[in-house]
């Protein structure tokens, strides 16, 4: 409310408030959460569609061959293990520990490579074709959705890693690192239900 001529008035001085804030105190974190909510919703509805289509067919999978367990389970293991370094560098980011975060990001980039490589073999052993029948279509949709997230997060990680070896290191970067870690959590946590649906649902649903 614009004040007029010279006078004393009360003011709330915010100059001492932090400008490097994490988690629920940071604006970007809430943005990431929002995105996760949206993508989570997409995953949820895709999974729902999977079971809806199942309820409309008598043979599931129609070919009788669910995806091979090996590669998918292997990838799941890698995903779960990758949470350890992730959590570590996420915490160090709060402390502004440059060396730790650099190391963490390098590890994250490498795990990304491993995941993507395994994912390649996974897709070769899905035992179905997206244009064969609705089952194949929904399986490929689910795996496709997840690999998109995997890819984008991996690229993001690479960029961030580069930034951390550039002259741009500062508070906001550590916040970014923290976001990146939380987003990886999302990628892993969404994979687990998808893994169960793709690999185990057809085995449990037989008969």
């Amino acid at each position: 409310m614009a004040a007029g001529v010279s006078q004393r008035r009360l003011a709330l001085d915010v100059s001492r408030l932090p400008d490097v804030t994490f988690a629920i105190r940071s604006v970007t974190w809430w943005g990431t959460i929002g995105m996760m909510a949206i993508e989570g919703g997409v995953f949820a509805l895709a999974v729902a569609s999977y079971f809806y289509l199942h309820s409309r067919t008598d043979r599931w999978p129609p070919t009788g061959h669910p995806p091979d367990l090996l590669w998918g389970s292997l990838n799941t293991a890698v995903f779960l293990l990758s949470l350890i370094p992730t959590e570590w560098y996420r915490r160090r980011a709060h402390k502004g520990d440059l060396r730790a975060v650099r190391l963490g990001l390098i590890i994250a980039s490498l795990t990304g490579v491993v995941n993507l490589t395994i994912r390649y073999f996974e897709m070769k052993h899905l035992n179905c074709n997206w244009s064969g029948d609705a089952y194949g279509s929904i399986v490929w949709l689910l795996i496709g959705l997840h690999i998109t997230h995997l890819l984008t997060d991996w690229v993001e990680t690479l960029v961030l890693t580069v930034l951390f070896f550039s002259p741009h290191v500062e508070g906001k970067r550590f916040v970014d690192a923290e976001e990146n870690a939380s987003y990886w959590y999302f990628v892993v946590l969404t994979w687990i239900p998808i893994y169960l649906v793709l690999y185990w649902a057809p085995r449990w649903l037989v008969g």
Binding site: S49, T57, W130, S131, G132, A134, W140
Partner: peptide, 24 residues
């Protein structure tokens, strides 16, 4: 999801909505 499935059915010959192939 629905518009994506529709596009996939139309452009990538998926079968989400084709009753003949288990679609609905």
């Amino acid at each position: 999801v629905s518009s994506t499935m529709l596009l996939l059915d139309r452009t990538c010959s998926t079968q989400f909505f084709n009753p003949a192939n288990g679609g609905d």
